[in-house]
């Protein structure tokens, strides 16, 4: 088991959002304020860890013909638990994310990791994978949120800081509100992925140079 490698993969080289392009519905739809991004990120991470652990533990018991149905049932169970808990204890978040909480069921990150990783690896490795992929997802969401909120509403930390109003950085009359609308979602994600591709190229070149120097 290689924790550092898995962490690197989750964060950058195999980031669920920017490289695997999984779970894009929620990435585009709810990234309008920091509160949403962090909330969604944590909800998905929690579900991902639980489902990875359970599916990995049951991987030898579930016949392969019905594995997808079995995985979906397990995932839907965890999602409903999180949905109910949020409704009861953090109603503001549940209201703000709305239908995208139940839609975590079909968030391809979770099914993708279940099928691609948890069904083939040990419980411990799957748990680590859940944590790393979850963190990678959360970071990608937070970046999207910060950019869209700053350009679209001119604030930082909406829903969290300064009594929920967020800290105003750009005066109210200037922000381009298209950025919090669908257009901004597509554009921001495009630029974020382009940025990460550029970063990975740079890192690769650096590594090559290092090896050449050796």
């Amino acid at each position: 088991m290689n924790f550092k490698k898995q962490f690197n993969e989750g964060l950058l080289t195999k980031n669920p959002v920017t490289v695997q392009l999984l779970g894009m519905c929620s990435t585009l739809a709810i990234t309008t304020s920091l509160f949403n991004g962090i909330g969604m990120g944590l909800a998905v991470t929690a579900i991902l860890i639980c489902s990875n652990i359970l599916i990995s533990a049951l991987r030898n018991f579930i016949p392969s013909q019905i594995r997808i149905a079995a995985y979906i049932t397990i995932i839907a169970g965890f999602v409903t638990v999180v949905d109910l808990l949020l409704k009861a204890f953090i109603p503001a978040l549940s209201e703000s994310l709305g239908v995208f909480i139940p839609l975590i069921v079909v968030n391809c990150i979770i099914l993708g990791r279940a099928e691609g990783f948890a069904s083939k690896n040990t419980v411990l490795a799957s748990a680590v994978d859940g944590i790393c992929q979850g963190i990678g997802y959360t970071i990608a969401l937070v970046i999207m949120c910060v950019v869209r909120e700053l350009l679209g509403s001119g604030t930082f930390g909406g829903g969290l800081l300064n009594n929920g109003e967020g800290i105003r950085i750009i005066p109210a009359q200037f922000p381009a509100m298209q950025m919090v609308m669908p257009v901004g979602g597509f554009l921001t994600l495009g630029f974020v992925i382009a940025g990460s591709q550029w970063l990975m190229k740079r890192l690769e070149m650096k590594n090559k140079k290092k090896e050449a120097a050796k």
Binding site: F61, I62, A70, T73, I74, G77, V81, L84, K87, A88
Partner: peptide, 20 residues
């Protein structure tokens, strides 16, 4: 197998629901 999984999920959800 599928029935058992669904049943377990249903029971667990009923439990959580009764709390929330």
């Amino acid at each position: 197998t599928l029935l058992v999984i669904t049943a377990v999920v249903a029971v667990a959800l009923a439990g959580v629901n009764s709390i929330t």
